[in-house]
Amino acid sequence: MRVATGGPGKAAEFWARRGTIVLGGLTVASLAVLVVLGLFVSDPDYQQGDAVRLMYLHVPAAWIAYLAYGVTSLASALYLWKRTRSPAWDTLAGASAEIGVLFTGLTLVLGSLWGRPVWNVWWAWDARVVSTAVLFFLYLGYLALRRVPADPAVRARRSAIAALAAFVDVPVVHFSVEWWRTLHQKGSVFNRELNPTIQGNLAWALLSGVFAFTCLYLYLLERRYQLAVMEEAIEERALEAAIAERRAEADVPPVRVPS
């Protein structure tokens, strides 16, 4: 099985047995805290009123998109580097990217739902919004590319290169509000001055959102990775079975399939 061939497999195996359970519990608990802080404890914003409660999901979702694509890039680089090459890195890259696409999509939809009441438009053709939409389609395309059948090594290699190329858009998205004039506001936490401009219980709600979504990401990543490993094992077995069948048809005694 691919998971046992080194790379992140062994470490993941050790931590995840207990980790999944702890992480799952932590995720559910922190999401519950987020609901309480975000919908009930947090005051409405002095300008935006209750609409600010959409920020507690929109900003963490965008953070998870960055994080997920960061993990995808790191895993892709580790796959491309000969000394650390392992099919498991490729599996991890794909698993993380899928979660990234989910959260990029959420970021866009939540941003739209937030933009309508506070900007007065659902969509703005500004650098932040458009570069985020570009990010969504870049990694959706990456997921499609991963599914184009090919030799596993060829597929992993080209996926890794595509993932690293797509990652160029992440800093563009992040700095778009500094580099260009946008309707979108600048960063309120990781801004140029590193001076958070969010105060009081609003800051706690946002922080709890970031924490809860980070736990959720790690939980989903572990689950998605496990699923990918199993599906790859099924594919491998199907392949072996097909080969065995062909050999039987050809009246040749079954031979171990070279891997």
């Binding site: 005051d43 935006q48 309120s188 969010i198 609003l202």
Partner: peptide, 18 residues
């Protein structure tokens, strides 16, 4: 024919002095 509001990135409860 269209007005958009360009918000700053400042968030605070109404009670905090601006």
């Amino acid at each position: 024919d269209r007005i958009m509001i360009k918000h700053g990135a400042e968030y605070r409860p109404p009670s905090v002095d601006a």
